[in-house]
Structure formats: structure tokens, C-alpha cells
């Protein structure tokens, strides 16, 4: 990770933390991979490629009472607000970082941004994000505690969403990240945790995970759930 990028990320997290927002958010997406280093410090763990977009998951209902304007909070850091896609999802852009906010998509799906009035932004609803919050871990980045999904849930979620990717390279990237994290968990002796979270999923999702692993020549990983 570039030093300036890491510094900016730490500053963003610091501001979110001091305003009391960070404890309500969960960092998901590819930025979890470098942040899991602390969790896997006693085993061999090689991080995979990460893009500059930081995805922050907002579990609902949001427990923030007073209004905090995220755009105002990051003022002076050089971020510009952009509206992505035809639906207009807000992303905060900087040459080093892109901040995006996500919520869980429920029911038939919204197909439009979910308004988060307390934070002055909107969030993109996505499927299966609720799976990530079944168990959270806390890691310290430059003295700031951030919530991350448990690596086992992160890996299982990545496998599930890889199947929904339309672009082949994104699919491979998701699978690569999931496999790296799963192997690190096995090396750490946490196969039982992997199995435990796996068993908490629906039968349909469990079958899907096994099939994806088998289709991608990861028979040993697929068998670790049996």
C-alpha cells in the first residue's frame, strides 16, 4: 500500500472515529485484505491486489442520533462528491481513495440508492452483506479501532458474490481473495470456525459455495467443510 494512500485512509478513519460514526460502520470489500494482516500475524499471509475504493457497510437501523455530514467531516482533505451510475450512488473521490457506502438489499430490491439522512449521503443496496456482520473482529489501524467482518465470513461471502459477477476478471479477483483468506485460516488452525459459519448459511448457499470451489479446482477447500 502506498504511504500517502495509507496516511489518507488513516486520516479519514480518524475523522470518522472522532465524530462517533466509525463504531457504527463495518469496513468490507478488498481493503479488508491488507487489514487482516494483524489477525494473521502468526501465519504466512500474502495479500492480493486491492483497488482504491473503500467500501463501508452501514448496518441498519443506524444507531446515530444526531446528524453528521460526512462530506463536511472530510472537508479539507480534497475529496469531491460524485454520483455513480444511472441510479446516482454517492461516492467520495480522491486520487488516492474512493469512499463508498453500502447497505443490505432486502426483499425484491430497491434498484435505487438508500438515503442515509443522518450522514447526509446515500448508500448502495447490495445482496448478502448481512452475512458479513454475523461476527465482527476489531483491528487497530494507527491507533483507531475499526470493525471488519470475521475473515471466515469475508471469504465465504466473496465466494458467493463471485458467482454474481458479470466480469470474469472481477470473479477471479474475488475467488483469489477468498482462497487466500481461507488458506490462511486453515494455517491458523481455524477450520472449525470456517465450518461453523458455513453451517450457519442456508442449504442453497452452502451448496453454491461447494460447487464454486469444486469448479475452480479447490477440492481440498471444498472438502474441508465436510
Amino acid at each position: 500500500m502506498e504511504n500517502s494512500q495509507y496516511k489518507l485512509c488513516a486520516e479519514v478513519l480518524k475523522r470518522l472515529d472522532s465524530s462517533g460514526v466509525l463504531k457504527h460502520l463495518v469496513l468490507v470489500g478488498s481493503w479488508c485484505i491488507p487489514f487482516y494482516r494483524e489477525y494473521f500475524k502468526d501465519v504466512e499471509y500474502v495479500t492480493s491486489i486491492t483497488t482504491r475504493d473503500i467500501d463501508l457497510f452501514v448496518p441498519l437501523p443506524l444507531g446515530i442520533k444526531n446528524k453528521i455530514d460526512i462530506e463536511e467531516l472530510l472537508d479539507g482533505l480534497g475529496f469531491v462528491v460524485d454520483f455513480k451510475g444511472s441510479e446516482g450512488y454517492i461516492s467520495l473521490n480522491h486520487p488516492e481513495l474512493i469512499l463508498e457506502f453500502l447497505v443490505t438489499e432486502r426483499g425484491a430490491g430497491l434498484n435505487k440508492p438508500y438515503k442515509l439522512g443522518q450522514l447526509g449521503i446515500n448508500a448502495q443496496p447490495l445482496r448478502f452483506l448481512n452475512l458479513l456482520t454475523k461476527k465482527l473482529i476489531n483491528v487497530k489501524i494507527k491507533g483507531i479501532r475499526i470493525n471488519l467482518p470475521h475473515p471466515a465470513l469475508f471469504a465465504l461471502h466473496k465466494i458467493i458474490v463471485s458467482d454474481r459477477r458479470r466480469k470474469g476478471d472481477k470473479k477471479s479477483k474475488d475467488l483469489d481473495a477468498a482462497i487466500r483468506v481461507m488458506r490462511a485460516l486453515i494455517d491458523k488452525g481455524e477450520v472449525d470456525k470456517l465450518k461453523f459459519f458455513f453451517m450457519g448459511f442456508t442449504l442453497k448457499l452452502r451448496k453454491k459455495i461447494i460447487n464454486i470451489l469444486k469448479d475452480n479446482d479447490q477440492l481440498d477447500l471444498a472438502e474441508s467443510f465436510v
Partner: peptide, 27 residues
């Protein structure tokens, strides 16, 4: 199909181009 690295670089290129437009607008 693009490889993982090329895919990520291509995504980043699109992000940079989109951001350039936004920064020019704001400026």
C-alpha cells in the same frame, strides 16, 4: 478475458478518468 491485474488496472483507469472530469468541473 482480462487477467486479475489488468482488470484491476482497467477499473482504476476508468475511476481516474471519471475523477478527472469531476475535479475539472469543481475547479
Amino acid at each position: 478475458m482480462k487477467g486479475v491485474i489488468k482488470g484491476a488496472l482497467s477499473e482504476e483507469l476508468n475511476n481516474s478518468l471519471r475523477m478527472k472530469r469531476r475535479y475539472a468541473q469543481e475547479l
